[in-house]
Design a protein around this nucleic acid. Structure first.
Length: 780
DNA sequence: AGCACGCCGACT
DNA sequence: GTCGGCGTGCTC
């Protein structure tokens, strides 16, 4: 008997199509992966449900064969994916493409058949051509488990361009295009041919061919990820010898009783830096697994996942545990995904936001550590907010969601204070350590760019170094100098694709665009007037490192931690370990420093420019600055000795400093929430950023102003407050002109409808890109 | 995504 | 003349 199935393609065109399932097929189930014919190709699709309606005027095709016996996706996760699709107005297939590991979406499979009457290997098209009798035979073989799916080891496209040697490269010095490609790859790592063509122009193909024939580059499969250190844990002690403090005990009790109810709940764990949140998580995790349910523990970054993994492994010696993040090898991702899909035994999963999509059978506890962190929001491809996804999952699975932070998201804390969920406070540090003293230092009178520190700061730094203690200096700006100024034409040197000032990186003798990654060798002539008097202005971490070395005794050891010095994961570990061991007295770095790392020897934290980021055109700039400064302050005095924090600012009158110096979240919250209420910003409105862009120098540019008027009218009609469209703060990025339109609405559904309307009325669907960013984190 | 078709330039 | 590059369009 033939049945009909709705199947969702996990690759373009992402449609949900109807396929026939004739009787000569194994048993099919919802959530299962199958091979289906599409046009003249074969694809992977996910079965959604049986149906009995036939679409009109379409000759239905038949499902070829299932790819596994047990469905890969359980109902909960299928619904979770649908939910994300609905929120983001994306088809389910698009969601699947982004959440299911690549190897589950590739149709390049063959079937190994252990039966004499068949060839040893069958491809999809071979199965299609079998007779009905033969296929019935094959069904039996399949049911007996004698038919297995196999994928080639690599399913990657083989068009990645990578370097074969380091600079200097033996090319003619004026072969500008060859050098541009070499330098770009040196700077940003191997790239696809098509990508290079997109950002540089149509000439790349020929130049790559030339470089390839000179064997300066190779073209092949994507390189093995470097960010994949061993997941083996060296420590094996199985003891659980931690004694909770009173406040930890209270927090644990509260989480335990929430776990005991077996119902969905949210708890915000508001614990100051150093109050021992991690051990609270671990105790709750143990309890949850004793109840036979799985735990998902999320952290914002891969480096933190590895750190947590190492400290948690010895505490859970006999537990099924998995480390999961987006930079693991495809084979490993596939293995973890499948294991969790097939085996419902309780497991402990540590990972980054993508771990939420693992088809864990029976989650009981989802923990989001540092819940204020912006990395929980994915911005590219399929945008989503991991906190929201976790909430939906916890509701669907009756599990407990724990949000932890010393500086919660204003929105989260507001919801808690309104009674949407419980807030558990931990206001004391564990052990002997106390919160550091924080002092604001006025640097408005310092005019000399060679002097990054006020006299007091410099004196304290020297003192700390002399005493053999450690200091951390944060400057949230990487590179040597963020501005290169031409003294002839008095223009800053800008990236031609992005129209933002390029940053000078001294050690690498390059100017680099921090937004698109484009790099040029330095020195170079001014792009405006051709003059050769380009002057680097202002300072980043690279220059600060030099300046610190000059200011402190010559034998002081200084380390630097930023995206440039930690290009490889091992480098980051190296720097962290080396500093923790006391091999250096000073650590200079960007906001990377503030994230969760434990430096027990640090007694002084200096923030070189506390104002950075405070004046960005973004309603969250104060919140972000507060969170960053409190978090980095929390790095001080974690050991036995008390800590001190010095924050330099050119605006000492800004009211934010009062809250930062006392690390008083509540005061900051009260002020900030008032501001948000007054100016109608989240959580008092549903904010959405519509981004509109078109290629630079596009001749249809004049279609935009009337289109923007249409948008304004449509918003008015929908009863949504719209600001713009206006040119975005970064008005030009990666070769596209950009416009932003900010929507304030009382209903997400209304906003989605308006977005759909805007997309529908776009005058040029090809050239104009329109994206919807619900509750934007980045307004630039 | 894959695979067709169709259009251009560069070789046997 | 054909081979092969890639732009465009379609897929139950």
């Amino acid at each position: 008997m033939t049945t009909l199935w709705q199947a969702c393609l996990a690759s373009p065109p992402y449609s949900i199509y109807t396929y026939e399932a004739p009787a000569d097929l194994p048993k099919l189930m919802e959530g299962q992966r199958v091979l289906v014919p599409l046009g003249r190709s074969v694809r992977v699709a996910f079965l959604i449900e049986k149906t009995d309606t036939t679409p009109e005027n379409i000759e239905l095709k038949s499902i070829i064969w299932p790819l596994e016996k047990e469905p890969l996706l359980n109902e909960n996760h299928f619904n979770l994916y649908r939910n994300i699709g609905t929120r983001q107005m994306q088809p389910l297939g698009k969601v699947l493409e982004n959440v299911v590991p690549k190897r589950f979406r590739s149709a390049k499979v063959s079937f190994k058949v252990a039966d004499r009457s068949f060839p040893a290997r069958l491809k999809a098209m071979d199965i299609v051509r079998l007779s009905v009798e033969k296929r019935m035979e094959l069904v039996d073989i399949y049911d007996q488990g004698r038919m297995n799916v196999s994928l080639p080891a690599s399913i990657e496209k083989e068009d990645y361009v990578s370097l074969t040697c380091d600079p200097p490269w033996p090319v003619r010095p004026n072969a500008a295009r060859q050098l541009q490609i070499l330098e770009y790859i040196y700077e940003n790592g191997p790239r696809e041919k098509g990508f290079l063509k997109n950002i540089m122009g149509d000439w790349t193909a020929g130049v790559i061919k030339k470089l390839h024939s000179d064997s300066l580059v190779k073209v092949g499969a994507a390189p093995e990820e470097e960010r994949n250190p061993s997941e083996k844990c060296s420590v094996t002690s199985a003891q659980w010898d931690f004694v909770p403090s009173r406040q930890q005990e209270k927090a644990i009790e509260e989480l335990n009783s929430a776990l005991d109810t077996g119902k969905s709940a949210v708890k915000l764990l508001h614990g100051i830096t150093g109050s021992g949140k991690t051990l609270v998580y671990m105790t709750a995790a143990r309890k949850c697994m004793e109840q036979g349910r799985s735990v998902i523990l999320l952290v914002p970054e891969i480096a933190l996942a590895y750190g947590l993994w190492n400290s948690l492994c010895p505490l859970f010696p006999d537990t099924r545990k998995y480390l999961y993040h987006g930079y693991q090898t495809p084979v490993r991702k596939e293995a973890i995904f499948r294991t969790l899909a097939e085996d419902g035994k309780p497991a402990l999963i540590v990972g980054t936001r993508s771990a939420l999509f693992l088809p864990v059978r029976n989650p009981g506890l989802i923990i989001i550590d540092e819940e204020h962190d912006e990395s929980y929001k994915q911005e590219e491809r399929l945008p989503y907010q991991a906190k929201e996804v976790a909430y939906v999952l916890s509701r669907m699975t009756d599990s407990l969601l724990v949000l932890g932070s010393a500086t919660p998201d204003i929105k989260t804390f507001y919801a808690g204070s309104q009674g949407a969920f419980d807030v558990i406070s931990m206001g004391k540090r564990v052990g002997k350590s106390v919160l550091p003293k924080v002092k604001v230092i006025d640097t408005s009178s310092i005019k000399d760019p060679e002097k990054p520190f006020a006299p007091e700061t410099e004196a304290r730094l020297k003192e700390v170094v002399e005493k053999g203690e450690q200091a951390v200096i944060m400057l949230n700006r990487r590179g040597f100098s963020p501005l290169i100024y031409c003294t002839d034409c008095e223009e800053p040197f800008k990236c031609p694709h992005c129209n933002v000032s390029m940053t000078y990186h001294k050690a690498r003798e390059r100017v680099i665009c921090h937004y698109c990654g484009n790099a040029y060798p330095f020195p170079l002539p001014c792009s405006t007037c051709g003059g050769s008097n380009l002057l680097p202005l202002g300072g980043g971490t690279e220059r600060l490192e030099e300046q610190v070395a000059k200011a402190l005794p010559p034998d002081t050891r200084i380390l630097r931690m930023d995206r440039d010095s930690t290009r490889r994961q091992e480098k980051l570990d190296e720097i962290l370990k080396s500093f923790a061991k006391g091999n250096a007295q000073v650590l200079v770095g960007t906001q990377m420093l503030s994230k969760g790392h434990n430096f027990p020897g640090v007694t002084l934290v200096v923030v070189a420019e506390g104002d950075l980021g405070l004046n960005l055109p973004d309603y969250r700039s104060a919140e972000r600055t507060f969170q960053l400064l409190v978090q980095v302050s929390g790095r001080a005095g974690r050991g036995d000795k008390p800590g001190e924090v010095l924050i330099q600012t050119r605006n000492p009158d800004n009211p934010i400093w009062g809250a930062v110096t006392s690390a008083d979240y509540k005061t900051f919250f009260e002020k900030e929430i008032e501001k948000r209420r007054r100016f109608r910003y989240p959580p008092f409105t549903k904010l959405t950023l519509i981004r509109i862009s078109h290629p630079l120098g596009w001749e249809g540019e004049n279609l935009c102003p009337p289109f923007f008027n249409i948008i304004k009218d449509a918003a008015k009609e929908a009863g949504i407050m719209a600001m713009g469209p206006v040119p975005a703060p970064l008005s030009q990025l990666k070769g596209r002109k950009r416009f932003n339109c900010l929507l304030k609405s009382d209903d997400w559904m209304k906003t989605r409808k308006l977005y759909a309307e805007i997309v529908r009325r776009s005058p040029d669907k090809k050239q104009i890109r329109i994206t919807m960013d619900l509750d934007p984190v980045n307004m630039l």
